[in-house]
Computed example of a mutant assay.
Amino acid sequence: MSKPTLLILAAGIASRYGSMKQIQQFGPGGETIMEYSIYDAIRAGFGKVVFIIRRDFEEAFKNIFEPKLKDRIPTAYVYQEMDAFLPKGFQLQVERAKPWGTAHAVLCAKDAIHEPFAVINADDYYGREAFEKMAAFLENECSPRRFAVLGYELGNTLSDYGSVSRGVCEVDDQGNLKHIQERTKVYRKAGQIVYEEDGKTFSLPANTPVSMNFWGFDSAFFTVAEPLFHQFVYAHASDPKAEFLIPAVVDHFIQQGMGTVKVIPTASPWFGVTYKEDAPMVIAGFKKLVDEGVYPSFLWKT
């Protein structure tokens, strides 16, 4: 059986952050956040890394990663192009600057991945245990009818500097995902966690399981996602900000009885950068992990 692949979503514009956070240095040896994910993935037994990027990122990405990953793990680069996988004859009704969203980004890797694979964000740190658990799932349980998601506690995943987007999970008594809903404006307010929708505010418990976009998929995901993307673009042809997101595909997979999605709980620490103000916390987090011996001071030093 082929080793699983790690697919890293790194094509986002990072409008709230204000710069290209995907390649910003946060580790004491000048490492990006995703380098720690790749390091953990290699330790967990992943066999390939595929980067989803924009074409104008290509040179910067290859200059960073190819010297470090050469002879350690094979790499591939896939581009999230605005016209990729659009239905034949489809025409946008408005000018669009943003990519089509995370599920479209994954779909763009269809020709590069033929084995079970994990999906992660470039700007989130997930922890060594998370990769070990996901690798075990992909190698032993994953199938066209069995996907997975890492489940984190909502209260441990917020920024102190503004709202975030989270996939809020409803889990059944077998530990499978019943429903996932993307909440795009989640934040702390007066000691509570709330989200906004349609001009109203709703509260959420701190221990609510949420997706941090760490998914485990069989390559059958592409077969599920492509026709849904076609439906999506026709429905949102006049909306320049509409995004085709992974939770929408996963929820369709579940609700249509196409299979089940295991929610893998993890005690791994999580941190990430949504806003510039998050950066010092991330830098301190990696320094602490290095001081504790979880990582060497320079990840790729031989």
Rank of each mutant, 00 (worst) to 15 (best):
Ile23Ala: 06
Val171Met: 09
Val263Pro: 04
Ser165Thr: 00
Ala10Arg: 08
His179Asn: 14
Lys98His: 08
Asn156Pro: 00
Ser163Pro: 12
Phe51Ala: 06
Glu243Leu: 09
Gly47Pro: 09
Ile8Met: 08
Glu170Gly: 01
Arg55Cys: 08
Ala136Thr: 07
Pro116Val: 04
Gln231Ser: 11
Pro74Asp: 13
Lys62Cys: 14
Val224Glu: 14
Thr5Trp: 11
Phe214Met: 15
Ser159His: 12
Ala237Glu: 04
Thr260Cys: 01
Lys178Arg: 15
Glu115Leu: 01
Thr266Tyr: 01
Gln192Met: 12
Phe61Glu: 10
Pro296Gln: 04
Phe147Leu: 01
Lys262Arg: 14
Ala76Gln: 14
Phe46Ile: 08
Ala148Lys: 10
Cys142Gly: 02
Leu6Val: 03
Gly47Cys: 05
Asp123Trp: 02
Leu204Met: 14
Lys185Glu: 13
Thr102Phe: 03
Tyr126Asn: 01
Gly285Phe: 10
Tyr275Trp: 07
Gly127Met: 03
Glu182Asp: 08
Phe229Lys: 03
Glu95His: 13
Glu196Ala: 05
Phe131Gln: 00
Glu66Val: 15
Ala122Ile: 01
Glu115Ser: 11
Tyr126Ile: 07
Lys287Arg: 12
Arg146Glu: 10
Glu58Leu: 15
Trp300Tyr: 06
Pro67Cys: 13
Asp198Glu: 15
Ser268Met: 13
Val78Asn: 06
Lys288Glu: 10
Pro144Arg: 11
Tyr234Val: 08
Phe65Cys: 14
Ala237Arg: 15
Ile120Lys: 02
Thr5Phe: 11
Val224Ile: 14
Arg43Met: 11
Thr75Asn: 12
Ala44Thr: 06
Asp123Gly: 01
Ala122Lys: 01
Gln93Gly: 13
Pro269Phe: 06
Ser219Ile: 03
Tyr126Gln: 04
Asn176Val: 03
Val49Glu: 09
Ile254Ser: 01
Phe51Arg: 05
Ala148Thr: 09
Ser15Tyr: 04
Ala136Leu: 03
Ile73Val: 15
Val263Gly: 02
Lys48Met: 13
Gln25Glu: 15
Val94Pro: 07
Thr184Trp: 06
Pro280Glu: 09
Ile246Lys: 02
Gly175Thr: 09
Thr32Glu: 10
Asp160Val: 02
Pro209Val: 00
Asp173His: 14
Phe244Pro: 00
Val49Leu: 10
Phe137Cys: 05
Glu243Trp: 03
Pro116Lys: 07
Ser159Met: 13
Tyr36Pro: 13
Tyr161Gly: 07
Asp56Pro: 07
Met134Tyr: 06
Met20Ala: 09
Ala130Asp: 00
Phe137Asp: 04
Val194Gln: 00
Leu69Tyr: 11
Gly47Leu: 02
Gly199His: 11
Ala248Tyr: 06
Ser268Phe: 11
Cys142Lys: 01
Ile64Gly: 11
Glu153Arg: 03
Ser2Tyr: 10
Ala242Cys: 04
Ala267Arg: 05
Asp172Arg: 02
Leu92Ile: 06
Trp100Glu: 13
Phe214Ala: 04
Ile42His: 13
Lys200Arg: 15
Leu107Thr: 01
Leu299Lys: 07
Pro144Ala: 07
Asp56Gln: 14
Glu153Met: 05
Gly216Arg: 08
Met258Asn: 10
Pro280Tyr: 11
Phe85Ala: 11
Tyr295His: 09
